[in-house]
Every structure is written in structure tokens, then in C-alpha cells.
Design a protein around this nucleic acid. Structure first.
Lengths: 261, 261
DNA sequence: TAGTGGTCTAGACCACTCC
DNA sequence: GAGTGGTCTAGACCACTAG
């Protein structure tokens, strides 16, 4: 076939055209191929979270494309919040390890009154084998080793959220109560700092449930009170699920806030 | 000050620079000014929902800018889902009046099993005066005339959501039960088709509550069952609130699904 | 074949940050 | 002043749709 005007470069060859295979065109514009290469480099940890990636013109040289094409690739990654652009400074790998990003995925806000910072307080941490549900959610074999964390989230020193968090043991080997207690900030900032696992997106399923004995004691509400049940799957680069959590949210003084577009 | 290289055009003058006022720079790039003009035209109804807007090159001539600048303005409006681009055909004003967009803001999905279409069934419709809460939410004076609609949302002929919907009377004058019953599709498609009101975004606040007598009968659950309470404010062009609704969602067979980025 | 959006390039210049 | 991202332009060409 035709490789058009694309030049070779160090890593692979870019195809400007149909990816052979006359059946389906699978046309992929150059900037998407650049985007995929950047994604690959991010996944491989070529640049650490919070660090600057090379400038647009450097990348243009590296990939033998124009600066505008690199720009468009970075634009998409910035829109997806994998990269952060800062005019005059450079483009940085997004990180949860930054107070402003600590609870980026938390949708709970106070019903009345100002926003107060959340605090994660670990309760327990143990090893387990994946039952059918966690196995399905985390896309690991039944019986695979897991680490489970129980913790609460406090606003103004009051428990508002109780979570049970399931992690594949392998990437998080070494996670224990001492580490959890020592860490300031969100769990995702810990995952990133200690294990190099960066969550890029998540999906939540919300239901209404009644507080059982355990939940009522944890959150300081009557047994039989209504609570939100929130299940979350978090994904790292390549949309690989790396965390499943199920939580109970008290909506006495807070509510789950969601923007619809 | 300096008007840079911008030329005049029919409607207003574009300023490439600081908007006078040395205090705050208020720099606004050209493409944002074009975007604002397009937004203004959309708000004024220059192009109807579902209709094509002029081509990029036509708009470039009209506004005396390059096609690339118009393109960037349209890009942002397309990202915000106010416009829809279709390669080879043109750029169209987004519309709720299209089966694929009918329940664009509805986050409820079946817990198990395939997605089934929702059906809106009106129950009541009456005139009222705005109490303090609707007045605040809709940004109208206390006592302002409202139209209130009660309806249920059905999946597979079963009631899953009960809503009470508050609308400012003025833009929706003429809305009644007959009209509601006659309309197929979502309320937003009706608002658009009959009243020219197009909702561009919304915000929801979710809490857990217990079913009272009325709610339990409506949704076919036990009194005291847990339900989601969902409040929504919907906004039209210019971020003007045009609808407030409060609903009860049964999460027996469905859950509220939310993507986090 | 004509018209539309989509991609890619090259170059100029502006805005912001830091030394 | 040097380096980075941000804007704007002009032109060429590709991909898709419809008459």
C-alpha cells in the first residue's frame, strides 16, 4: 500500500492510510496515531505523574510530524485529563497526588454550607481471594489474590462514607495498615505515589438501600435509615480495571452532585 | 487601543485584544468571540434545532475570519453538544427531538438485562404560584406563575420513576394534559418542538430517602423502602434555568449510572 | 461532480513563565 | 531573553455524502 508522506521514526512506522485489510477501512488520522504513542509512553511510565513531557516541538521532531499534529494529539489527552497544559510552562502528566485533585472522583458535597475537605481514615486491611463478584469486576480469575481495605471518609470529623475497597494483590503488593495510616490525602494519590498506578476514569452505580446494623453504627444513623449504595470501578491506562469499591453514603447533610451534558 | 488585524463585520466589532479596561486583561481569543456570536444566533433561534447551520467557509466570510478559526469555535460548541458535526453533510443544531437523544439526561439503566426504552406517562398538570424553593431554583420571583407536571417513567410498562416538574409559566404557556398525552418521546423533545425551549445541560442532586405512602403506591414498592431522590435543574442557552424537577427512582431493578472523568 | 467537514502543514505572532 | 503553550492564517489534500 501507500505510506503517504509519513517518515519513519525510532519506534514504529506510522501509516497514514487504511491499515491494509481492504475489508474495513480502519482509517486512523496521524494525530490519533501520535496520541496512541503518547498513551503507550504514559502507560510505560516514560514520564512520571506530575512531571513535564517534552515540548510540542520536540515531540514533533521525534515523531516526524508537524507541531500542529502533535498539538491535536495532546489536546485530546488533555481533554481526557491524562495531561495538563500550562501555558508558558509545559505539558504535565496528570496526577492525583496534588491537593486540588485529591478527591477528583468524589461527587459528594454538603447540602448546605461550604465545601469542607474530606479525610480518609483507614479501618482495616487484609488479604483475600477473589469471590465471583470482585473477580468479574476486576477482570481477574476467580480465587485470585486480592487486598481489601475498609475505611471511612470524614467531613468535619464525622463519618459520611464507609467504603470497602478491592484491589488486585499483585500491583499493590506491600499495601498495609501502616502505609494507609501514614499517608495524607486520597487513596488514589497513595496508589500513584507508592505503586505507580494511576486511575484515569471510573464508573459508578448508585442505588438506595437501608442501613443495616453495621452501616448504621459506622455512619451514626438509625438502623433502617436510607443510604446511598455506590459501587465504583476505576480504570488505569488502557482501560484496565484496577479497583472495585462498594460504599455507603449518608445523605443526611450531603448529596451526590452530578453534572449532565 | 489596538484592534489588531481584525476586520469589521455586520453585527459587532471583534476586539482581538484586551477589552479596554486596564484593570483586568479579559483577553478573549477570536474563536471565542465567534463562538459567542454563534451562541447568540442559536439563542435567538436563527437556526432551528435539527437544521443545518451555514458551512464553515460561509461563516468564515460572514465573520471575516479564517475557516480554521470558525472551525475552532464550532469544535467547542460540538464538544458541549450544542452542535453536531456530520462529515460530508454539514453541522447541525443539536436537538432532543430525535429518538437517540430522547432521554439524554436520564442516567437510570437496568441492573441486569438489556437496555429497554423508557416511556413518559403524564398524570397531572396544573398551574401554581412559585413557593420559595421552586422560585430559588428557577430564578423567578416568589409567587411567579408556574406550570407543574406530574408524570411517571415506565420501563417495560412498569413505573420506575415518579417526577414532579416545575416550569416557568411564561415560556410554556399552553402546556396541558392534552398536549402531554399527545406527545411521543421525552418532555425535552416536547419543550423543543412546541415551545422552542432547548435544554443544553442539567445538574442533579441525589439523596437516599424512604418511600412514603404516595411514593410506594406510585412505584409499586413497600412503604419504607429505600428510593433515590433526584432533583434536577435544567438550563437552556445562556445557562438560564428553565426547569426544576424532583423525582423518586426505584432502584430495585435499575441503578443510577455515572461516568467519572 | 460539487460541497461539506476532517487532516496536515508551515509560518507568524501573542501570552505566559522563569531566569 | 529564551522557551513554552496558544492563536490565527492560508493552502493543499483526503473522506464522506448526495445529486
Amino acid at each position: 500500500m501507500d505510506d503517504g508522506k509519513n517518515l519513519c521514526f525510532t519506534e514504529t512506522k506510522l501509516s497514514n492510510w487504511h491499515d491494509s485489510m481492504s475489508g474495513s477501512p480502519t482509517f486512523s488520522p496521524l494525530y490519533r496515531q501520535i496520541k496512541a504513542l503518547l498513551l503507550q509512553a504514559l502507560d510505560a511510565g516514560e514520564w512520571r505523574p506530575g512531571a513535564a513531557i517534552p515540548s510540542e516541538s520536540e515531540l514533533a521532531v521525534r515523531y516526524s510530524v508537524s507541531q500542529g499534529t502533535v498539538r491535536k494529539a495532546i489536546d485530546e489527552l488533555a481533554t481526557e485529563k491524562l495531561l495538563i497544559r500550562r501555558q508558558g510552562k509545559g505539558t504535565f502528566v496528570a496526577t492525583h497526588n496534588d491537593p486540588r485533585q485529591f478527591f477528583r472522583f468524589l461527587r459528594l458535597v454538603p447540602t448546605n454550607g461550604e465545601v469542607t475537605p474530606a479525610r480518609s481514615v483507614p479501618l482495616e486491611c487484609w488479604q483475600a481471594k477473589a469471590g465471583p463478584e470482585p473477580a468479574r469486576m476486576l477482570d481477574v480469575p476467580h480465587g485470585a489474590p486480592l487486598i481489601v481495605v475498609r475505611r471511612v471518609l470524614q467531613f468535619n470529623k464525622r463519618n459520611v462514607v464507609g467504603d470497602e475497597i478491592y484491589l488486585p494483590a499483585e500491583p499493590f503488593r506491600g499495601l498495609d495498615m501502616d502505609m494507609l495510616k501514614a499517608h495524607e490525602g486520597s487513596l488514589y494519590s497513595l496508589f500513584e505515589a507508592k505503586f505507580g498506578v494511576h486511575m484515569i476514569r471510573a464508573q459508578e452505580r448508585v442505588r438506595a438501600v437501608l442501613a443495616d446494623r453495621e452501616g448504621s453504627e459506622l455512619l451514626g444513623v438509625e438502623e433502617g435509615s436510607p443510604l446511598l449504595s455506590v459501587e465504583r470501578i476505576s480504570y488505569t491506562y488502557g482501560d484496565r480495571p484496577m479497583e472495585w469499591r462498594r460504599g455507603l453514603y449518608s445523605t443526611v447533610d450531603h448529596c451526590y452532585l452530578n453534572e449532565l451534558n
